[in-house]
Amino acid sequence: MSTLHTVNKSPFDRPSLQTCLRLAGKGNAVLLFEDGVYGAMQGTAVADTVKEALGNVSIYVLGPDLKARGVGEDKLIDGIKVVDYKGFVDLTVENDKVNAWL
């Protein structure tokens, strides 16, 4: 069964992203939204962890939350895909369940 994991916390505030990536099954999807979008940026202290995880899971980031925070798509780690709210809904449909890492 495939899972969509949602992460809405900055990885510099809480370990939600790190824990999510540790416990996400192979082939699962991870969506970064709200303050979670900061985990998608290049050159941060968690970027290597995120890049490594891209070999195991697909990572998406919510565009409207990126824009609100002034994070340009050119700042994102390669391989992370930007989705809008419709894309968020589609991800919940494509996967069998949603696990929110609050």
């Binding site: 809405n8 939350d65 449909v93």
Partner: peptide
């Protein structure tokens, strides 16, 4: 928290998609 706004936007997008 942003949670309520995120939920509102998600619900609207889900309804738009016919869910």
């Amino acid at each position: 928290h942003e949670a309520s706004v995120s939920a509102l936007n998600f619900v609207k997008a889900a309804l738009d998609a016919g869910h």
